[in-house]
Each structure stands twice: as C-alpha cells, then as structure tokens.
C-alpha cells in the first residue's frame, strides 16, 4: 500500500542578498538584491507502508525541506504530495493526528519542565485515552530506558536523553508515518546505537513508515534497506544500499599482510596505495582487475593474509556527491539517474 506519493515537488525561496559594509547596507534599504534558491527542484518519490527509507545528501541538498513539505510546515512552489491520502500543507487535523516529525536540531519539549509534563500536554492535544496513554508511555520509556529521568527538567538532560524524550513525545499518539530529521546528530556512539536499536525495533513492531535523514552512515546501514540520495534538490539515486556500492564504487580495497617484515616496492603498479603500515598494506584496485592483480601479487610476494573489501560507504557516498556536483557545474544542468 502506498503511503507517500510525491510528484514534481519544488520549493524555491527568495533570499535577500545582504552586501558587505555599511554603505551597501544603506543602499539595500532602497534597492534590494535577491537570490532565488531552489531548495527542492522536482522530486518524485513513492514510499509504501512499512518502509524505512533514508534520505542522504550533503548539507543544503533539500532533505530537510522535503521533510518539512511532507509535514505541512511549509507549502511547495509547485508539484504535489500525498501522505496517507492527505495533502500535507492543508494541515488538516485528520492528517496531523497520524504522523510525527522529530528534528535533532530543534526541541519541542518544555525546556524548564520535566518531560512527563510535556507528555501530558500531548495526551490532551491528541486526546489520547488515559489507559492507552499510560500503556504507550510506559512501553516507550521501558524501551528507551529513561524511567528515572521522567521527573527531571528537560534542560538538565543530556543531549542523548533529551532526544529519547523527543522520540517518546512524538510517538505517544501512535503515528503511522514518522519523519526523522537527523535524530542522532551530535550524539555519542553509545547514544546513537541506542536510538538506532530502538528505531529498528519499534519500526518492525508497529510496521510504521519512516523517512530518515542522517549524516551518519551507521544509522543508514543499521536501519534502512532503501536509500534515496538527494543532491542539489534532485534525487540522484533511489535503491538499496547494495546497489549504491555495485553501481557507484569502481574500486575495491585489498589488504595484504606480508610474511617478511619489509614491504615490496613495486606494489603501486597494481593500484593506488592508500595505507602503509608494515607488514600491512592497503591498495585501491579497479573492480575489473581485482582477480588478475591479486593473482599476480600472490605469485610475486610471500603473503600471509589477504582480504578484499568494498570501500567504506561514506567514501562512496562522498564520491557520488562530488561527482554529481562536478557534472552539474560543468554542464550547468542537473544529472538525474535512476535505477
């Protein structure tokens, strides 16, 4: 069942360009220069019920803008979107009862009060039955292990604890669709891991639809099968994680451990040496020559251990970002490719 359908979605902003200096500021009082920023430049997307989709892209790619459009916080310049059958920016209560938005950089809980007071407020606003409210709150509090912190003012919580409370607040009304905008930003590894585990478990349990933006590849690997890559306001890839590696990574990384303690000098003719730590060596080899190169190296040198890996996902994604940018810079057009 299709939960989200987006067609030709665009959002442009007019931004006042402030010139440097006092005199220019005075001039700006009378004659203003504007720059049109195209945050989202025609996005098409279809997401089924129960999918967990990651939005990847460099800063300013249009990920957050897309989530805000889908939450109805802002209206598009053109294009259409339907979430659970509703047009988000009409802000119908029937729609607003059925989804939630969590933003890692903003908080909606009352800063000076314990989180439980904000939860009660949500209970009233969403009019959740008292029994259902208590059951859901206790379930979420248990899963996220924050029972002892409920009575502590939000301003005295750590960032990770606060994020957990934000998640509880967002999930109390059992939304069917959840938009997560960088939920793990700024968190330490343990807190990130906790939140990943929770999201993964909760999504499978409730079969809700989640759209996630994140800069942490670990979030994406842990949570999402489907990845949508956005750069400069357009989708450049929509598919599985594995497809990204297959399609975009042209190289593999071979790690060699030599039997004698020295390192051979002629190894760079097989590929670029990316790490040298005797007796270990890492080289980057073009995909199609991996078998030939490996056979040749093994014949020439005494090798104790060997492994062949895909390059780290971060690196592949970074390469996609830069290559798309270069392409669009050189042609003046956007590169759109879809699998």
């Amino acid at each position: 069942m299709e939960t989200i359908r987006i067609e030709g979605l665009r959002k442009t902003y007019k931004i006042y360009q402030k010139q440097e200096g006092l005199r220019a500021s005075f001039r700006g009082l009378f004659r203003r220069r504007y720059r049109v920023v195209e945050a989202v430049r025609g996005i098409d997307l279809s997401v089924d019920q129960g999918e967990f989709v990651a939005f990847l892209g460099p800063n300013g790619a249009g990920k957050t803008t897309t989530l805000k459009l889908l939450s109805g916080v802002i209206s598009p310049s053109s294009g259409s979107a339907r979430v659970l059958g509703h047009v988000p920016w009409r802000r119908e209560n029937a729609y607003r009862r059925r989804f939630a938005l969590v933003m890692g950089q903003k908080n909606q809980l009352w800063w000076d009060l314990p989180a439980q007071e904000s939860f009660r407020l949500h209970q009233q606003i969403y009019r959740i039955e008292p029994a259902a409210f208590v059951a859901r709150r206790d379930e979420l509090v248990d899963l996220l292990e924050v029972g002892k912190l409920l009575g502590q003012p939000v301003r005295e919580l750590s960032l990770g604890e606060r994020m957990k409370m934000e998640l509880i607040a967002a999930l109390l009304h059992s939304p069917e669709v959840l938009f997560l905008d960088e939920p793990t930003i700024g968190l330490d590894v343990v807190a990130q891991h906790n939140i990943q585990n929770f999201l993964s478990y909760y999504q499978k349990l409730k079969k809700i639809t989640i759209l996630l933006t994140s800069h942490y590849m670990k979030d994406v690997i842990a949570l999402c099968k489907r990845v949508v890559i956005v750069t400069d306001g357009v989708i450049v890839h929509d598919g599985s994680l594995k497809e990204i590696i297959d399609r975009f990574s042209t190289h593999k990384v071979i790690t060699l451990q030599f039997a004698d303690h020295g390192l051979p000098h002629d190894i760079n003719r097989f590929g670029e040496v990316i790490e040298e730590q005797a007796p270990r060596l890492k080289i980057r080899v073009a995909k199609q020559t991996v078998t030939d190169s490996l056979a040749a190296i093994l014949q020439l040198h005494p090798v104790e251990d060997v492994s062949v890996e895909d390059p780290p996902l971060e690196q592949v994604i970074a390469e996609i970002f830069t290559s798309v940018k270069q392409e669009s810079d050189s042609t003046g057009k956007r590169a759109i490719s879809k699998i």
Partner: peptide, 27 residues
C-alpha cells in the same frame, strides 16, 4: 485508537497549559 477523529478538549488543553506554566513559575 490511532484513527479517532476526536477533537481536543480545548478547556482541558488550556488547563494543562496553565498548570505547566504554574509548575514552571514555581521553579
């Protein structure tokens, strides 16, 4: 539970605002 189209009870929401504000003021 998830699809109930009940409207919020505005009086009770307001009382919760007032109560939360009082808790904060007393802090």
């Amino acid at each position: 539970a998830s699809n109930s189209s009940q409207k919020p009870n505005y009086a009770r929401v307001f009382l919760t605002f007032a109560r939360n504000s009082l808790v904060r003021d007393m802090t």
